[in-house]
């Protein structure tokens, strides 16, 4: 049985379609990444799955329970971390844990053990008496994760759990997610950090309410192999973009960090043409090399393809 199944879900707010005919399934124990730019509809989808929003049409089930008809059953078997930090700032670490332990109705004999587990997992044993508001971003998110798994739910919904957390703490957070997955927990996690996509078993890319790509990170990258990617570092990126417009063999140019990523069909022939064109315009090329496409390249390409389709 799949942990999460979504069939043709639509969610509208008035006339605005926030989730547009989304279908997907997540297997037990999977880390499923939900990616997409701001406003793509990630949080809305997650809220539908948690029973917080009623889908306008379509069906979805979590742990075999229907989201529209059995939300209470779902709530007993999931953990949820909302996008906004939502523990009590004015309670201590331990008080927050005790509160949610009681709310989830964790059996009395398991409480001490769950608390110890969560404190250790979040590495907060020493700071158990600290007010939650005094914790830094990374600690807060680990505590929030801890409070969401006190009742040991088989499925976890994490909505951008690492936003606003420094890279080191993000790494530590993903290590926790992997540990949980190894013990059989299903994790449905949204993010807009593309590098985090690599940590997921499978990904869905959401854009304007639609899932525009679905697969493992390798599969999604393989979708781009018809083309190659060049990293171009030049003296003036903007002029470079203009210069490369319409050049034969150049499929796409995107700003990437300080430089440009150029999508081409034939690496050698097009590289030569690019150098030629730029030299003619007096633009210096500091570096031009083929690179492995990153997840971000994949998404940029997919989104641009989507926009071309719409136009």
């Amino acid at each position: 049985m799949n942990s999460v199944e979504i069939q043709d879900i639509v969610k509208t707010f008035g006339s605005f379609v926030a989730v547009d005919h989304v279908s997907l399934a997540v297997a037990k124990g999977e880390i499923f990444g939900f990616l997409g730019p701001n406003g793509a509809g990630k949080s809305t989808t997650i809220r539908v799955l948690c029973g917080l929003l009623t889908p306008t049409s379509g069906r979805a089930s979590v742990n075999g329970f229907d989201v529209a008809r059995q939300p209470e059953e779902i709530r007993r078997t999931i953990g949820y971390m909302s996008q906004k930090f939502s523990l009590y700032d004015d309670l201590t670490v331990e008080e927050n844990i005790d509160f949610f332990t009681g709310i989830y109705g964790v059996p009395r004999e398991k409480r001490a053990e769950r608390k110890r587990y969560v404190l250790e997992m979040a590495n907060l044993t020493e700071r158990r008496n600290a007010l939650t508001r005094t914790l830094s971003g990374g600690w807060k998110q680990r505590l929030a994760l801890g409070c969401a798994i006190l009742h040991d739910p088989p499925v976890l919904f994490l909505d951008e759990p690492t936003s606003g957390v420094d890279p080191l703490a993000r790494g530590a957070f993903w290590a926790l997610i992997h540990d949980l997955s190894e013990t059989g927990h299903t994790i449905f996690v949204s993010t807009h950090y593309m590098d985090e996509a690599e940590y997921c078993h499978r990904l869905a890319l959401m854009y304007r309410g639609k899932v525009i790509a679905l697969g493992t990170p390798a599969e999604l990258k393989a979708g781009l192999t018809a083309h190659s990617l060049l990293n171009l570092d030049s003296s003036d990126p903007l002029d470079t973009m203009r210069a490369l417009e319409g050049l034969a063999g150049v499929l796409d140019v995107a700003v990437f960090g300080g430089g440009l990523h150029v999508t081409v069909d034939d690496v050698d022939a097009t590289s030569a043409r690019v150098r030629q064109r730029l030299a003619a315009q007096g633009i210096k090329v500091r570096k031009l090399e083929q690179i492995e496409p990153s997840m971000e390249d994949v998404f940029v390409a997919l989104i641009e393809a989507e926009e071309r389709k719409a136009a």
Binding site: C50, L52, R75, R76, I78, S82, F100, I103, Y104, G105
Partner: peptide, 8 residues
């Protein structure tokens, strides 16, 4: 919102 996703 967090409380709503608990069995309370």
């Amino acid at each position: 919102e967090q409380l709503m996703v608990t069995p309370v």
